[in-house]
Nucleic acid binder design. Structure first.
Length: 480
RNA sequence: GGGAUCGUCGUCUAGCUUGGUAUGAUACUAGUCUGGGGGACUAGUGGUCGCAGGUUCAAAUCCUGCCGGUCCCA
């Protein structure tokens, strides 16, 4: 036994979990850290994160949100200020109990999230309606000790994310902000990562601890499980009261402010791997691919080598001038076949091959990663490549949409629901709004309410569990 | 919380029953040939055998404790 295979050794279909881990490691996105539950990002993985970060930053900025920085340690006394919030996070908090040899008096939490810390500061900064709205985003990491099995990007004890915290004078304005952010999340994930999402509200049971309500975007993964891709919370005055985030309004009366918080994490990268990857490895959407095009030159004598590398260099320069990220793989020690497989495993969206035969015909061969299609392109048609990348991006989203559609079913019969749930998928099932039904369904099927889509308020149906009148048609699924 | 099982070059592993200089593959380095889908040959580098004790002339191997991983059950 024990021959280490170079490529992915299991199929996505047969052993999804093992497949996923192999792709992450072999595409060199991340590696395991020496501490259980923690991972290390390698340059290709971090580059994808940076790309998402820059897109979000642009959109946040257009929405009047600026970036700040918060420290990682939060005193227990602060974290415990909002009771429900604390109770929700407490089981998975890492605590710092010593500084050097000395025990610290008030234990320090490694932030599981920063609401309590941010709002302590906000209460100092906000005095008047003129100070509002206050909109700050923080790029950092959060730490939550994971007891269950961990998985790179999907469930780790420390994760990269952004957390935004805004403060408003009115309830309406805060609620609007919640939706604006959710829309930014949705269009970024769909346009950049080519993953379709469904937006809506979380049920009371599943909402963020401390929020009035939570809006969410959910996606369906190829194994039929749901993945929460990002959340945007309306906090109401639940935090502004204990933390005294108050302002004097135009009426000269002090009011508690209205707040929101929202975040997405590197889970998005995990989703991208799962949705687009195949048995050869990673498949990257062009927009976030660290390398969008790789040129593999093919030659067997010095004369060919020179003219081919010259041509490759020329193409590279041409495309680089259009901001395309392109790499020439001139490694001598590897055969072309090895390189093809290598770059496919790493998910590079487009490969260009140039060999002696192509030189003679004044053509190059291009191979698309996402559908393995190979075509020829004349030397005079290089400028088309820009469009080809755009086309790949939109086709990948289309393909993912189709996949999601196939995995979504309307269902009204509980018996049928129970049978089908093990196959996985999104189930549109009417619900009476009663938490007991929700809990029973979770208990009996393992599925919970992932999201109540915004357009699925519906009182014409009957609850799939208790048969009482429905209030909505949520999406039920088993989740990550 | 209960149970099972495993820790040996970067990685995967043989050796353990019956104690005696740690095996092979892969990866890595160098060279030659090769080159349109995971190439071939030759040579070389690399391991305090998870940690700490104990038994013994001698421990990867036997014993004890600890640490860590994985899986199953609650």
């Amino acid at each position: 036994m024990g021959k280490e295979s170079v490529g992915i050794s299991v199929s996505k279909k047969e052993d999804f979990s093992e497949w996923y881990t192999q792709v992450v490691l072999k595409a060199k996105l991340a590696d395991y850290a020496p501490v259980k539950g923690l991972i290390v990002l390698r340059p290709d993985g971090y580059s994808i994160w940076e790309s998402l970060k820059s897109t979000f930053d642009k959109k946040f900025s257009q929405n009047g949100i600026r970036n700040g920085f918060l420290p990682v340690l939060i005193p227990e006394s602060l974290l415990g200020k909002e009771q429900k919030h604390f109770a929700g996070f407490n089981p998975e908090v890492f605590w710092v109990t010593h500084s050097g040899e000395n025990e610290v008096g008030d234990r320090l939490a490694l932030r599981p999230t920063s609401e309590t810390l941010a709002y302590t500061l906000y209460s100092k900064w906000i005095k008047s309606w003129r100070d509002l709205p206050l909109k700050i985003n923080f790029w950092n990491t959060a730490l939550r000790a994971e007891i269950k099995a961990t998985k790179p990007f999907l469930r780790t004890s420390e994760f990269l994310w952004q957390e935004g915290h805004t403060v408003h004078t009115t309830e309406e304005e805060a609620k609007e902000e919640v939706l604006k952010i959710l829309e930014i999340y949705k269009n970024t994930v769909e346009e950049e990562l080519a993953i379709p999402v469904i937006t809506g509200k979380k049920s009371e049971k599943e909402k963020f601890v401390g929020a009035v309500y939570t809006t969410t975007m959910e996606s369906i993964m190829p194994d039929g499980k749901a993945l929460q891709m990002g959340t945007s919370h309306f906090l109401g005055q639940n935090f502004s009261k204990p933390f005294e985030v108050k302002f004097a309004d135009k009426d000269n009366i002090e009011h508690f402010a209205w707040q929101t918080s929202w975040g997405v994490s590197w889970r998005l990268i995990g989703a991208m791997i799962m949705v687009h990857g195949d048995d050869q490895g990673l498949v990257l959407p062009p927009k976030v691919a660290p390398t969008q095009i790789v040129i593999v030159p093919i030659y067997n004598n010095d004369e060919d080598k020179k003219r081919i590398l010259d041509k490759a260099g020329e193409i590279k320069q041409d495309l680089e001038s259009k901001q395309i990220r392109i790499h020439i793989d001139d490694r001598k020690e590897m055969s072309p076949g090895f390189k093809f497989n290598d770059w496919e495993m790493k998910g590079v969206p487009l490969r260009i091959e140039i060999g002696p035969k192509d030189m003679d015909k004044q053509k190059i061969l291009i191979a698309k990663r996402y559908n393995k299609e190979k075509t020829n392109l004349g030397f005079d048609e290089i400028s088309k490549i820009e469009e080809i990348l755009e086309e790949i991006q939109s086709k990948m989203l289309e393909k993912a949409r189709e996949q999601a559609r196939l995995n979504t079913v309307d269902i009204t019969d509980y018996k049928e629901f129970k049978e089908k749930i093990s196959i996985g998928g999104f189930f549109n099932a009417p619900w009476c709004g009663n938490q007991e039904c929700e809990e029973k369904i979770k208990e009996e099927t393992g599925a919970d309410i992932r999201v109540i889509p915004f357009d699925k308020e519906d009182n014409t149906k009957n609850c799939i569990y208790c048969n009482e009148k429905s209030i909505s048609i949520p999406i039920f699924a088993r989740g990550y």
